[in-house]
Amino acid sequence: MSVYLVNTTDSEDVDSPQAAGDSPGDPNKFFITAEAQEVLNSFWPKVMEEIRSIGQLDLKNQALPLARIKKIMKLDEDVKMISAEAPMLFSKAAEIFIHELTLRAWLHTEDNKRRTLQRNDIAMAISKYDQFDFLIDIVPRDEVKVNRTSSDGTKTSMNPDQVHYYFQLAQQHQAALQQSNSTATTNAQTIQVVPASTQLQTVTINNDAGDQNASATNTNTSNTSTTSQVIQISTPTATTASASTNNQALGNIQLVQQVVTPSGEVQQVPIQLSPAQLQLIRMQLQGNSNQPIILQTSSAIQGQPQVIQVPQTGTAATPVFLSTSNASTSEGE
């Protein structure tokens, strides 16, 4: 009996037209096959759909961890409660976002005929697409990065803020010095010498060359004493609003040494330069000459000779290295 059953099912399943031909008067049988066929036909799409939806779910769970996303969301202190679907949506959104950002970055990779997606491509993609504006600071363009690394290379680097700060300092001292100093200088230019505790000296020079950004400079001293100097030469320009009001454009340089005494007091010691020396310095600051110039300066008050070396590397924005030698003798006081 079982064999018979198997046979009939076989004939039905394998070649149903033949089975139908064998017993044409059996509509019931045919109906069953049609129904089975229908079920069979709809079976795979159904299974596929299920699998696809499962796959979607799996991906979701596998994709970006909801707990992590929730953690990130909670970083926002204003956020109080988060419904269950929100992290899920965020995870999806972040996934789409990564997709989008990657593709946009890849456009730039292709533009440059490269096969490797670089960081800069992403930065470009971000800067080119308004909706990604919020990321501009997160992935900055490489130019900025290069600047940063190059400035890191030098010992003392100054960003404009710092320079501005020094400039302001210089002005304050200028004003203070004006009152105490009657050395016939109306300080169109001021050289300020501020001692620091290291051997290195930081010199900021803001000169007439039209560049408002003072250049960060490095000075080396052969100073053997514990006091070293920060020399600031600020030349008020027409463009800087910070030009001192009492500037009468005589163009003399007032050189002030600040000496920190062990007790912490700051002494300001004015040093006078001869007009010729000033002229030399000014030329150094303004001109494009590359050679170092050694100035023999004798400090008028202290009577100590000073050699100031001012090599300038061209434009105003480039670092200037000032080295003062045998300044140490005068600073002990």
Binding site: L64, I72, A93, Q118, A123, F132, F134, L135, I138, V139
Partner: peptide, 17 residues
Amino acid sequence: ARLAIARAASVFVLYLT
């Protein structure tokens, strides 16, 4: 680049939050 994208995605989530 991968790091930059990951960081950008984090910030994106925060921004969207």
